[in-house]
Design a protein around this nucleic acid. Sequence first.
RNA 1: GGAAGUGUGGCCGAGUGGUUUAAGGCACUGGUCUUGAAAACCAGCGAGGGUUUAUCCCCUCCGUGAGUUCGAAUCUCACCGCUUCCGCCA
Length: 424
Amino acid sequence: MLDPRLIRSELDQVESQLARRAFRLDTAAFAKLESRRREVQAKTQSLQSERNSRSKLIGQAKAKGEDIQPLLAEMDSFGDDLKRMEAELDEIQTSLEDLLLGVPNILDADVPDGRSEADNLEVHRWLEPRKFEFEPQDHVELGARLGQMDFEAAVKIAGARFVTLQGPLCRLQRAIAQFMLDLHTMDHGYIETYVPFMVNADSLRGTGQLPKFEADLFRVQSEPPYYLIPTAEVPVTNLVRDEIVEANRLPLKFVCHTPCFRSEAGSYGKDTRGMIRQHQFEKVELVQIAAPHDSSAAHEALTSHAEEVLKRLELPFRRVLLCAGDTGFSSAKTYDLEVWLPGQQAYREISSCSNFRDFQARRLKARWRNPDTGKPELVHTLNGSGLAVGRTLIAVMENYQDQSGRIRVPDVLKPYMGGIEVIG
RNA sequence: GGAAGUGUGGCCGAGUGGUUUAAGGCACUGGUCUUGAAAACCAGCGAGGGUUUAUCCCCUCCGUGAGUUCGAAUCUCACCGCUUCCGCCA
């Protein structure tokens, strides 16, 4: 959520900033609601003030044993007026809140203009893609030949966009997650965290998935409803909801391995083959809660932590700065890491690292105590995949395959594989 | 799932209809004292919002939401969390 005071005082600037995302802020509607709010709030508060002072007089009169009937008579119609005014104020504030909840974050100044993926800016590449002396297979083919990846079984058990794995391939996926957790906890200073895989609506509102993106979520039929987490970002970032964090604890750095569930309602027809886009996948997530003046540096650091996973796995990748049109609703600036997939002859997203600045924090009421002012102020929140485990599995399979379809285990994963050096 | 208890500021905790403007303590901040620190003493110290150059002033907030009342932390109802006991269970 944007700062309402910013929108009030800099309405035109906010409008033109949001236009970079092709988001049209209804400034007329906002200005109209805002002036109504101002007027009704002032009236309501003066009525409340009068009620309070009159009630106090009644109390005092009663304490002295005086007759309070005349005073009570004066209050007669007063209560109704106040109630009507309070109801109207409540209505206006709800409307303003609804409007505000649907407005995306303002982008950082260095986010490039652009409409789509095609306008994203490549920042750097790491490692030349391997030259194969044979036609490299994609992970679907490789998995089938190994007899360890079965999509048909998953269709029977659940439906489309699920997968089953068996044997060493399962272990490889587990090894990848373990390796990532060890790297981030031991070398990068993150605290390992375990969280619920279902969350309430308040949590999703806090991180920005609700109210706008309910269609992307799986909802559980409970009362009140739970939602399967689309990313560990939701439960982990909500750890600081309604909290005031002491300055000396910042930055908070959490790493969390969870399954993620996405209904991907809007994306049917895209990436229908293989494990690229699934309803359920594993991810190791990095979350940082930072003081505002540190968040840009934290964003660079967090992104480099995700990159380190790819470097140690010796997987070719590039870092891309997302353009205005491709940056997510809540984010002020996002880097994507894209890994080289020989089976597709393309770089594909394997991590997305975002700085949300105070956008989520305002929704979450996540604050820190600024030692300079002594006052609670909003923190900045950041997160990034470190990495998507399922896609890392694919990348390892495709980049480490040999001519006969066997998978060599990357050196850094060998300690987790119980002596297996080659799968197949 | 059943029963009983309980929910108050960063933390502990008093408060059963009217100067509650939420006592008191801890923590924190500033000051006095001290070579320095501690202790002691003095003072300050919740959050959000409105108005304002600023101060002032005003409103809201005692788990959440409804309700009763001129007036609610306090009374009523529902829901949620926690504690204890019983039942069930990996």
